[in-house]
Amino acid sequence: MTELLTTAVTRRRFLIGAGGAVMVMAAPSARAQFVAEGEARSAAMRAAIKAIVGENSLPQGRIKIELPPLVENGNAVPLSIAVESPMTDADHVKAIHVFTEKNPQPNVAVFQLGPRAGTADIQTRMRLADTQLVVAVAEMSDGSFWRDEVEVVVTLAACLEES
């Protein structure tokens, strides 16, 4: 859950319950809508991946993504990507595409590299609006595509600012 990606649907609130307890939660009426939107967004991710991969097969392998098992804050999630490749003129990674399932937009970033990179080893930080699937696709110089995916759990930061 992130400040920036927060839609009205996922906005966190401190609420005072009958017992005087603090609760951090999404507005309940919006919950069902969120689930429905989640389905639609997953479809958006599939479409975004298809736009890159076309009719090619997309086996798991050669590419590895690493994200913390439990994300402390969805605003800046450290992401590492490595692809097994000799990175020669004849055989290298051309691009790496990163997608998410439930962010408002499925695309995260595209990295274009070539033999001069030496390795295909990238780190960046991304936003995750919720617990969801992150998918990375490696596009190779031989025209093949490879994928890796990770399910990430996003926790909430407590003691938020009134916004």
């Binding site: 307890a21 603090v22 939660m25 919720d130």
Partner: peptide, 13 residues
């Protein structure tokens, strides 16, 4: 999504 009761329980403790 974090459920309500978990936070309520945490504060109760």
């Amino acid at each position: 999504m974090i459920s309500r009761w978990r936070i309520a329980a945490a504060l109760a403790v």
